[in-house]
Write a protein that binds this DNA or RNA. Sequence first.
DNA 1: CTGAAAGCGCTTACAG
DNA 2: CTGAAAGCGCTTACAG
Lengths: 335, 335
Amino acid sequence: MYVSLRDVAARSGVSFQTASKVLNGVPGVVAPETRERILRAAAELGYVPNAMARGLVRRASVTIGVVADEISDLAISQFVLAAQRAAAVRGHAALVSTVNANNEAGLAVRKLLEYRVDGILAAAPTLENDAGLGAALRGTVPVVSIHRVHDGGVPTVGSDHTLTGLLAARHLLRLGHTRIGTIAGPAGRQVVKSRMRGFRAALDEAGHPLDERRVVEAGWSHDGGHTAVHQLLDSDPTVTAVFVHNDVMAVGALKALHERGRKVPLDCSLVSCDDLSFAAYLVPPLTTIRIPFQETGERAATLLLDRIGGQPIPARNLLPVELVVRESTGPPPDQ
Amino acid sequence: MYVSLRDVAARSGVSFQTASKVLNGVPGVVAPETRERILRAAAELGYVPNAMARGLVRRASVTIGVVADEISDLAISQFVLAAQRAAAVRGHAALVSTVNANNEAGLAVRKLLEYRVDGILAAAPTLENDAGLGAALRGTVPVVSIHRVHDGGVPTVGSDHTLTGLLAARHLLRLGHTRIGTIAGPAGRQVVKSRMRGFRAALDEAGHPLDERRVVEAGWSHDGGHTAVHQLLDSDPTVTAVFVHNDVMAVGALKALHERGRKVPLDCSLVSCDDLSFAAYLVPPLTTIRIPFQETGERAATLLLDRIGGQPIPARNLLPVELVVRESTGPPPDQ
DNA sequence: CTGAAAGCGCTTACAG
DNA sequence: CTGAAAGCGCTTACAG
């Protein structure tokens, strides 16, 4: 039902090999009028080249694979969207495969390899410690990741999370807060460790070391943030500011603060991370540290394509983060 | 660098055709021990079948294409995620291509066809009136869409949007509201027309026909909802309830209501559509009509795969919507 | 300027 | 039970 090269060749009176060259734009192979005839025949017949056949002989599918966590996570979906776009601009289609802790990530990667993807983008931070993913990713095809990969060996692109923690703490300190708490993401995650490191360092530096009763670990969800704020306030009702590890948790945190009768920022300040689209529209608008998800996706795709093209690429690529001050932070209440 | 069927055949002392049959599980082709040898050789060598070669001869890529709007839209990303998962379960990889009004959707589809996808899932409601998309989608390969396709001819799966509008209005009427406004999505969109139809019908039925000064059209964004509420309140300050066409707009609407000093639901009720994950965590928690995006994705993928498998599928597939009452709606204020 | 050969890595009748 | 032939739709040296 698809027309083949032979069909367009037949209609234009040349061999199918010649038709191939012309349609691929190989320069100077035919007389202008022959070329015209071939092009016209292809258009009239609605010729659509078969990428599988081409990929087979060229030994390149002109395709990248992306292994991603649930793309219903806004951060991940922004990344995947930007990466897919960047790849498309350079002519590559994207085969996306979502993974989670239950299904074997190794199998997902292997499936991608069956399709002979030219490279793989890893965007499954949830599996950063998954040995199966790490093993599957190493060695077969160029890979770029936006997170640590178990046992390393994969170039990464991401943000400076230590700086993120530092910026959050300094912002709060500068406003005059000293009793600062934090709602951290899952403790096993690198991003959480880095943020905590920067956060702690800034507090130490200011002479207000982090009180361990003021740190609560939670899942990256509305519910996580919501529950954690209640725990935090139970543990130390005197905190005047909270650093939440992402915007999604911050939504839940805001709700919990409201339930506790704490006005934000009058009674309690809140600073978060991500700067997702809704951050500016919450009540109050969220002060947050912008993580450049789209730029990360774009950059990751570009690096991967460069690598596929044979160029060397840096092992670590850091993108800038930026404090966006809005209305959820202010000076601490008077004593 | 990839090992081929010839390699595993050589190592196990059979012809590559025999190796092919065994690895494909063709029943009863070899003696058990030969079979063992071949399987072992494949494992030792790390054989990964070449899906392009297989696709070429089978004339099926075991792949589906999905053309989607920006997947940073939570509704779309939920759909794509669920569809991809459902396809993966049935062994199909997903080639995803995002489109927008600027880039030619027809080109995106054509690219998918080059890869010889076995079918296409359309999830680009933004382009429902785009003739190029419609034309590209028709005729080549099975297609299932979650929205209307220009000039038709494509099976759809979705929700009953007329019912959605009806449910919203009835809920508000039952609470005692009579001066009800609405923030509608872009007027050209089918979903908006349907929702308005249901909404109007319910109000008419109740004897409180919709006053045109109480309808404001807006984009599907936080900002759209935000701006529109201000317009609505300028146009008629006496409204006591608002029906907003999606949760994302509702976030902006809530903010605008707050800026106007209207407490929700005491001074003004708000009912929305979608029930995205954050809806339950806003202040106040949103009363909204749940649209089953994930089920839609799953269903669409399943139908497409059935269709690819040669089965007939219904031209229209409706999934149930459901009113989720939370705290953003209540009785109107006393006069 | 154009054509014919060889081959990419497989699957699938068809023989034996 | 196993093998050899033919072919899927292309690209790319190589001849002429």
